[in-house]
Amino acid sequence: MLRDITIGQHFPGNSLLHRMDPRVKLVLTVAYIVMLFVGSNPAGLAISIVFLTALYLTAKIPLKMVARSVKPILPIILFTAVLNLFFMTGTSEPLLAWWIFKIYREGVYYAIVMAVRIICLIAGTSLLTYTTSPIVLTDAIEQLLKPLARLHLPVHELAMMMTIALRFIPTLIEETDKIMNAQKARGAQLDSGKLSQRVRALIPVLIPLFISAFRRADELAMAMECRCYHGGEGRTRLKQLRLHASDIVLAAAAALVFAAIGMSNLFFERIG
């Protein structure tokens, strides 16, 4: 079901992670992704997993949610893993050889490493959106990109567009669900038939969806105009982002973990 899409979903809470400065969270998430690819040895990955699990526990977000966010991209993970399994060639004797397929020890390692990486990547970025409301997140992006405004990059406008897009994802998903149900009630076949039939069956869903999206955009523009929105210039904020001591402590802790991941490369054999 469409409802199961969790990207950009937010779970309100009051944990240490929820209260953390979104700019710090954003930077740390990016750093975490980089470290996932730097720490390419079993120890490095193990630290990454433990670190992320600890963060999930701190945020009081059930680990079940990880399963939910990973589920939609499971095919991609499996595909990558299988591909690596068969295409990595190693120097040692193949573990298995059958016809043109040869599986080397390196292939097995690499397949596991890639799968773990992708899962951590999804789980890590999901944690960011789970603990940060979209509005606050775009606020953080806007602040972090502010230096680029000097180069005449429309930072505020981009951030506003992102805020609006994120805000309307759940609304449009709900709307799509409703329209699909209404057309199914009139006998539309949306989940069976040949590909060409299925594409044609989407027309009764897409047209009402576009029309409603335009209608909403129109209403939103009107509402913004009514409240005298005139872009970012001279705009002040109700909630100013401020760094707290706890942010610095957490950032320092994360930096230590990242350093550990980096160091692990020195002591363990690198894979891939």
Binding site: E175, I179, A182, Q183, I203, P208
Partner: peptide
Amino acid sequence: VFQYPEYQLF
């Protein structure tokens, strides 16, 4: 007939 069925016209 769902609520606000006019939004399903296409």
